[in-house]
Amino acid sequence: MSLKAFHIVFLVMSILLAFFSGIWLLRQYASSRHAQDLAAAVVFLLAGGAMICYGKSVLRKLKHISYL
């Protein structure tokens, strides 16, 4: 597995982490009503969205490099 393939695996895991953390913090906010929970949730969800966009662009940019 090349660095490209591992990077894609890593990105998928990071995106999952970002959305998991975002949703977890939103649920936390629902019970605590602390603004910092909401702010952290928004940061994570935005980061997850940004990583999806980055993933698409990196796949295009590295299409000539092997997965092996």
């Binding site: 982490l17 977890w24 913090l25």
Partner: peptide
């Protein structure tokens, strides 16, 4: 480096969130 980062991706929710 990616492996080290991947370990952190598991460590963060386990230690900081859950």
């Amino acid at each position: 480096w990616h492996f080290v980062d991947l370990v952190w991706i598991f460590l963060f929710p386990v230690l900081y969130l859950l």
